[in-house]
């Protein structure tokens, strides 16, 4: 009988641990999506193409390169080759069929939103005697901003999933309170208030939730680490550790805390109900 009771509690513990694992894993996945989307967005917004209008020919390209090299927003600038253009077009046009290009690919430093980078580049090129136009990646208002939407979806999706897991943890903890019903009845008979009784059961559930959340969080961290090792070609342990930001560990840190709070709240509610039932017969 005792072993059976312990077995039920053990099953409950692993239910909590699994829910914490799932929530933490979803949180880590959301962080991964966020990091990829953020880096995509950074790469997209820090890139521009300069089309040289005058002077024409190689002299114009060379003058533009010199002017761009002196512009403070530019980290690198390179004329677009026919091969590169063909690759960007996905092989629709062969490199040898490509007309003479007057394009320069430019990588930019990150600039605050209020800075008119295109205007500054056009001015810098004009100072170097070059007439050119600058083509930047489209901003949110022109239909882009997919990365932002993906980041929001990942964040709120993970929050919603964690809430669902919290409900599961809370319901499982109500089961623990049901296992402690005889204790609730005894405590009620001995004059313990609803708060004292529910508090004791909630504390026990919260401690169980804390440990289960710790295990679930650590397992999710290990699983996330393994996935990254497999998913990033050629990455080693040191490089991977270097890539991880403290904020990426938030889901692992939140798992024990969240599981403890959800388990405590569920057990408290159930124990309060059982106490109320035991306290009043009529």
């Amino acid at each position: 009988m005792r072993n059976a009771l312990t077995g039920v509690e053990r099953a409950m513990f692993w239910t909590l641990a699994f829910a914490a694992f799932a929530a933490a894993a979803a949180g880590l996945a959301a962080r991964g999506v966020d990091r990829v989307a953020a880096s995509y967005e950074a790469a997209r917004s820090n890139y521009a193409i300069v089309r040289v209008l005058a002077p024409e020919g190689p002299a114009g390209i060379a003058a533009a390169e010199v002017a761009l090299a002196q512009a403070i927003q530019v980290t690198s600038a390179a004329p677009m080759t026919a091969g590169r253009a063909a690759a960007l077009l996905g092989g629709e046009v062969r490199a040898e069929d490509m007309p003479a290009l007057r394009l320069i690919e430019v990588e930019l430093t990150a600039a605050p939103a209020h800075v008119d980078v295109s205007g500054d580049l056009v001015a810098a090129l004009a100072q170097g005697g070059v007439t050119a136009e600058v083509l930047e990646a489209p901003d949110d208002s022109s239909g882009a901003g997919l990365a932002t939407r993906v980041r929001n979806a990942a964040f709120w999706g993970a929050i919603a999933f964690a809430l669902v897991m919290g409900i599961i943890v809370s319901l499982a903890a109500r089961g623990l309170a049901a296992r402690r019903r005889e204790m609730v009845t005894v405590m009620c008979d001995l004059g313990a208030t609803q708060g004292e009784t529910a508090g004791r059961i909630a504390d026990e559930a919260a401690v169980m939730g804390l440990y289960a959340g710790l295990i679930g969080g650590v397992l999710a961290g290990v699983a996330g680490f393994a996935v990254l090792m497999l998913a990033i070609p050629g990455v080693n342990l040191d490089a991977l550790i270097g890539m991880i930001l403290p904020v990426d560990l938030t889901p692992i840190a939140a798992a024990p805390l969240g599981a403890a709070i959800a388990a405590g709240a569920g057990a408290r509610a159930a124990a309060s109900y059982f106490h109320a039932q035991a306290a009043r017969l009529g």
């Binding site: 001995l190 004059g191 208030t193």
Partner: peptide, 12 residues
Amino acid sequence: SARARANVKKRI
């Protein structure tokens, strides 16, 4: 009150 009742119960 519930608390007063609980206090009485503790003495029974």
